[in-house]
Design a binder for these strands. Structure first.
Lengths: 204, 204
DNA sequence: TCAGATACTGTACACAAGTACAGTATTCTT
DNA sequence: AAGAATACTGTACTTGTGTACAGTATCTGA
């Protein structure tokens, strides 16, 4: 990518910021108004230069077609629950408490319709470096392997546990990763809601 | 928020998905085309109903003014570095390796221009539940307090350490949180680049 | 030194897109 | 049973917006 001039970097920064804030990229005249240009063409020249240098792409003829950079981080929204209900209807964001929005690069994988987020309560998984208040990303329906951290419904509340199966035909157990909770629960009697595949921690 | 009909939920889902994918919300005619409507007013009726029910807001008169929901998660982009250079120029995303995009609700605070992300290398902070490969969010310029995890430049590489200062006038130290690295380093001789305030873990 | 890129002003045009008004059939609620 | 909301069709108007063409001044690299 060719180097941008100071002015071009300013314009690019405004475009990205405006799209993040407004939900749509600015029009050429909005760019012109922001920088005091008296002609929409001043903004257009900058956009064309940015496009030529690979900093963004445009969709010709479309209103607000600028701003979609080729390396633009693509974000996904993952519904977040306090406690996942037993059924886990596919209705998705219906009764979710909110959404986790994150870009695919950082997340590391592409979530599906059965991916959800869960706020962790309790410190039963400190041994796996998952703390109280963390938000874990889970995949529903994936078959858990030995050592995976899973979300299970215990006493009408989602709790994280380690999935333990010593051999291919051995019985599966759930184990808390905290000496204070030495319980070992048979996995077959519980509803495993998802396998933990990611984590977000805030306010450390 | 009033309950949405199945059709309205479909339209809302399309609007959100299209904006995530394209970077701009769809026009009324694009919605109509997606659902096979022969009139842009069919889409407009749905958008008005969704607006009336509080599912989204519109900016009248603006092209692609729909899709900005009131509870729409506002995202921020935080430049991500492999190793933070000593100077840490304010130029921001210039030499960043990428961006972490995340919504403010999940992040838990509003980042400033001196907020950056760092990929963790090594397991020197497992005692604080920060693992190799984690991405930590740091704030540059904030004064570290006792117990904070900080990013410090040691041997031309950013490393995480715990900031230790026993009393108000005591000397500050940096401590690794791993028995294998028992080194205690004087903080004054090192460049503290930022205080860790968040974390993202992937591919657990 | 000279061509090209940068950084604009100014006017005008064509199309994309929001909007208005009129109308129909079905479903839901009271 | 009545009224409102839902879920559209169809046409037309107006504005927002991308685009084209013409022109000026400054700066930068070959």
């Amino acid at each position: 990518m060719a180097k941008l001039t100071a002015r071009q970097a300013e314009v690019l920064e405004f475009i990205e910021t405006a799209r993040d804030a407004e939900g749509a990229p600015p029009s050429l005249r909005e760019i012109a108004a922001r920088f005091g240009f008296r002609s929409p063409n001043a903004a257009r020249d900058h956009v064309r230069a940015l496009e030529r240098k690979g900093a963004l792409t445009t969709r010709p003829g479309r209103a607000r077609g600028i701003g979609a950079g080729p390396g633009r981080p693509r974000t996904v929204r993952i519904p977040r629950f306090g406690t996942v209900p037993a059924g886990f209807a596919e209705g998705r964001e219906q009764d979710a408490e909110g959404c986790v929005v994150i870009d695919l690069d950082t997340l590391g994988f592409t979530p599906g319709p059965r991916t959800f987020a869960l706020q962790v309560r309790g410190d039963s998984m400190v041994g796996r470096h998952i703390l109280d208040g963390d938000i874990v990303i889970c995949e529903h329906g994936r078959t858990p392997r030995h050592g995976d951290v899973v979300a299970a419904l215990i006493d009408h509340e989602s709790t994280l546990k380690t999935f333990v199966r010593e051999g291919p035909r051995a019985r599966a157990w759930l184990r808390a990763e905290n000496p204070a909770y030495p319980r070992l629960l048979p996995a077959a009697e519980l509803v495993i809601q998802g396998v933990v595949v990611g984590l977000v921690r805030r306010r450390i």
